[in-house]
Amino acid sequence: MADAAPAGPKQVVYCGVCSLPPEYCEFGGTVKKCEEWLKEHHPEMHSKYYSAEAIEQNMSALSVDAQKRAEKDAQKKAAKAATAEARAQEQRATSKVVIKRIERNKRKYVTAVQGLEHFGLDIKKCAKDFGKKFATGSSVTKIPGGGDEITVQGDLSDDILDFILATYKSVPEDNVDCIEDKKKKAAG
């Protein structure tokens, strides 16, 4: 309980897994992972919070009945967190980034990129990056089916493919599709 001296702010370590201060990890639902993380990064804190006597002390503060309930609750929470993570991972595995070349006016093209948001990327930032890299207009536009896509001026599908793979390591190569949109011409 060291009081912060009036001189400066108190530094608080936050868990890299659940983002809470480590002492609250036990309520986060990802206790196992948090514990491992803490052991790796802050061993001295790990021994403080996860020692046998600390756990025992925590337990003794509650009545048996409340303990049981808390445990049940914690289990439920953990299960929920696990399924949520599994789902996110699955989505990451199945979702695709689509790079589409759209013909705008005979020899003019725009390139549309969809699906980057599934890989934890901020598409607004990506659009900015594309624009900077290729020195063209690049914007985030809403698509009729809902959601957003990045529209880059010019035929850049191959370059964008390379750029995405080089810069955003979280996107696996197999999940990027490069297609040419010809339907638009036929329809219009």
Binding site: D3, A4, P9, K10, Q11, V12, N58, A61, L62, A66, A70
Partner: peptide
């Protein structure tokens, strides 16, 4: 960062 600058209360573990 500045825990001492606010009015504080405490709750029990449960």
């Amino acid at each position: 960062k500045y825990p001492d600058c606010f009015t504080r209360l405490r709750i029990d573990r449960g």
